[in-house]
Design a protein around this nucleic acid. Structure first.
Lengths: 224, 224
DNA sequence: TCAATTCTTAAGTAATTATTAAGCAGATTA
DNA sequence: TAATCTGCTTAATAATTACTTAAGAATTGA
């Protein structure tokens, strides 16, 4: 399950992401219109939590765009307490639910659950790729139903590969997804080599070698 | 209280499970005849919600088997609107009630409640995991039928583990469930180490060591 | 209210995992 | 083919996370 949190208040954004990351397999954030728009074009999400009052560009505008593209994801709008109109307009535009600031995270979560339940969006606890299976609740990995022990970073890396199979992932993107936003500034991704190497060793040993190097661009996870 | 939902329509299954998990201590699902049959043999349930029109194998067949085994659980049949015969046959075979698609979840819930009330089912409000048994009314715990004394927090922790078996539970989530909502903000969960440690000691001493550390992610309760 | 139990804090230790760094290997380009 | 860039591997060091214990707070029950 993949969530996107489009919220410009950094603190709230982080609270939400932290809270929801246990429900989602992938929980990403966007801090402004541009970033959200970009991510929505590049990736598929099951749920988008959208603050309708994004400073840069309107959240409603984003929602309109989203629905034009006919993406199959549930949308939950966050709105400031006053703006009833925005809410209604949002629902008109195809949002699935809304929640008013301030709110409890548990409340947001149960609304997401409700949207997922009544919609056709997402909904599976294990992810497979060829003979690899990830149990996302137990955070455990299997190759041909034999468990392999992964560290946290290795698991996250493998999950990221599988949920983005076939796509070339640059070291910068991998770093951003596994280490968060602060790594924008880094220009040294040496440590990724190490994690890739470790994960490769474990997968190869178990008989599943799918991490391919795209020389000069990054890596991709793909069956030969 | 343990429920089993035998329903092959994934979406409906999830709706029911999510809705009823509030009422039940353990609410499990089965998607086909084989899975349901297996679970019924392995575990005891207080209530079985059985879709009589399971694609694979007949629901009626399952019910017949269930009653042959003389299991003490209440059975509520879900039937498609037309098949009156199935309903009657189901009741003949010993089902306790039926409900016709489509139905409101609240309706299903109140029928379950009614069955529980008038039946002898669920009188023993206990949850088991391997050799561990929790008496949820007395809030007491047993390992191989020998009582072990737990403090409140230890009991709550164990209950939380057992009802979320196999799932990685982060310290933040554990804190939230045992200490309430305010703990979102806490960034220090040191005290959890202590409770985990205490519970582990008691369980281990009694011969049941199921709390596994998922380094960097949390803990999970699982049989090797 | 007092005594007993239970919870939390704190501090030191242990274990695991992440990152750095350096040398090597393979690829690409001129 | 030399020069350069990119990626691989390994081992060491650093950082993080977990465990354990004991003592002081807080809570509970009589």
């Amino acid at each position: 399950m993949k969530y996107l949190i489009a919220e410009d208040e950094k603190e709230l954004q982080q609270s939400i992401a932290t809270y929801l990351s246990r429900e989602a397999n992938v929980c990403e954030t966007a801090s402004d219109y541009r970033e959200a728009s970009e991510k929505l074009e590049l990736y598929d999400y099951d749920i988008v939590v959208l603050d309708i009052n994004l400073i840069t560009g309107s959240g409603l505008e984003l929602l309109r765009k989203l629905k034009e593209q006919n993406k199959k994801c549930g949308v939950i709008i966050i709105s400031a307490n006053s703006s009833l109109d925005d809410k209604l307009e949002g629902l008109d535009l195809g949002a699935d639910d809304y929640i008013t600031k301030p709110f409890h995270l548990a409340e947001l979560n149960s609304r997401i659950k409700a949207v997922l339940r009544r919609g056709q969006f997402g909904g599976n606890d294990s992810i497979t790729f060829e003979e690899i299976r990830l149990d996302t609740l137990a955070r455990s990995a299997y190759v041909n139903d034999k468990p392999i022990t992964l560290t946290r970073k290795e698991y996250d890396l493998l999950l990221f590969f599988i949920t983005n199979q076939g796509r070339v992932l640059s070291k910068a993107i991998i770093a951003e997804h596994l280490w968060g936003d602060d790594s924008d500034l880094l220009d040294n991704f040496d440590f990724i080599y190490v994690h890739i190497n470790n994960l490769r060793k474990k997968l190869t040993k178990a008989g599943a070698k799918y991490i391919q190097t795209a020389y000069g661009s990054g890596y991709k996870f793909i069956a030969d």
